Amino acid sequence: MMMGYGFSGPFGWLGMGLGILVHLAFTALVIMAAIWLFKTLFRSGSQNEPRTDALEILKQRYAKGEITTDEYQHIKKELE
């Protein structure tokens, strides 16, 4: 008669339970990595827009004469 360990290994039900937990943890990590990758790849570039918008507003204010050349240059340095 040949005795084998079967699906759960030499630990019986405990081995099967630990195997399920490891499998669920791995699946959760894969799903989280996929979500992170999706968000990173399809980000709308919103980090650069406020700075670009601020520079455009600054240029418009300078063109309208609302600020002086010194103020323009000082604010531009701060934004960059």
Rank of each mutant, 00 (worst) to 15 (best):
M1S: 09
M1R: 08
M1E: 07
M2N: 13
M2S: 13
M3T: 14
Y5R: 07
Y5N: 08
G6H: 01
F7T: 09
G9D: 02
P10W: 01
F11E: 08
G12N: 05
W13C: 07
W13E: 12
W13K: 11
L14E: 09
G15V: 05
G15A: 00
G15S: 06
M16T: 14
G17S: 14
G19E: 00
L21E: 05
V22Y: 11
H23Y: 15
L24T: 14
L29Y: 10
V30T: 07
V30M: 09
I31F: 08
I31N: 00
M32P: 00
A33W: 05
A33Y: 01
A33G: 12
A34K: 02
W36N: 10
W36A: 14
L37Y: 06
F38G: 02
K39L: 11
K39H: 02
T40L: 09
F42C: 00
R43K: 01
S46T: 09
S46H: 09
N48S: 11
P50H: 05
R51S: 08
R51D: 06
R51E: 13
T52S: 10
D53V: 13
K59Q: 15
Y62H: 15
A63L: 10
G65L: 09
E66T: 10
E66W: 06
I67A: 04
T68E: 03
T68H: 01
T69N: 06
D70E: 12
E71Y: 03
Y72E: 03
Y72Q: 02
Q73H: 08
I75E: 08
I75N: 01
K76Q: 12
K77F: 07
K77A: 14
L79N: 03
L79K: 01
L79C: 03
L79D: 03
